[in-house]
Design a protein around this nucleic acid. Structure first.
Lengths: 110, 110
DNA sequence: CATTTATTCACCTTTGCCGTAAAAATCGTC
DNA sequence: GACGATTTTTACGGCAAAGGTGAATAAATG
């Protein structure tokens, strides 16, 4: 989270992607989820780095999966959003909500 | 915006605060708006730096106000969100919306 | 051992943040 | 009616963390 307590934009996105990916949340899937939903290109290295930051802060947990029986199917690191992670997400979203409360962003121009 | 096109968390907050402050959007008011809405303590220097970044990117515009007839009432820099700024805000919000679409965060019970 | 899938590394730029200095205005007092 | 004290507003310098990329490395299987 930015400085003390707050999630950066990308961290929030990564957390959401982990939730979306559910029981299959490992680097490659998380990365794909982000690229599809945000419609922007993201280096996979950035994803791993954010995950590592989030892990150190206790917002995600990591466990090792088993290798899968396909060529190159090496063992995965599966991620899960912790309770603290959900709380941080909620707080961040609520902050945005308060900032945007009653604001009209446009709807007008494009 | 982070790297190419995207607003960071704080930049988005600052832009929203500028909109909220309307015709009285200068450093001190913007800062107060942010502290009240986000409920966190923010250094005013951070606000000015973010405004300067946003200005260089063409997301806010600055014009000089007149001095006000109060002690220490020096001339203000008034800020306004540009069309490009609104677009950037909208894009960022839409990205969040897509990421969070259908996700249950545990509902807004703080 | 070549290939494929997954993760890590080295390095860089930009954000975010703080504390404090500087600037620009008015006020009090003489 | 000027001068310094005071107040409001803005600018500066520096630092740690976040965000980003491209390429290297690791661990599986065919």
């Amino acid at each position: 989270m930015a400085r003390g307590e707050h999630l950066g934009e990308f961290e929030l996105i990564v957390l959401a992607a982990v939730l979306r990916a559910g029981s299959d949340a490992y680097g490659v899937v998380i990365h794909r989820e982000i690229e599809e939903r945000t419609r922007r290109r993201v280096a996979i290295g950035s994803v791993y780095k954010a995950l590592e930051r989030l892990r150190r802060k206790g917002l995600v947990e990591r466990r090792l999966g088993d290798p899968t029986p396909v060529r190159g199917g090496r063992a995965k690191q599966l991620f899960e959003v912790t309770r603290a992670g959900r709380r941080a997400m909620r707080r961040t979203v609520e902050t945005f909500d308060r900032m945007f409360e009653g604001l009209e962003l446009g709807l007008d121009s494009a």
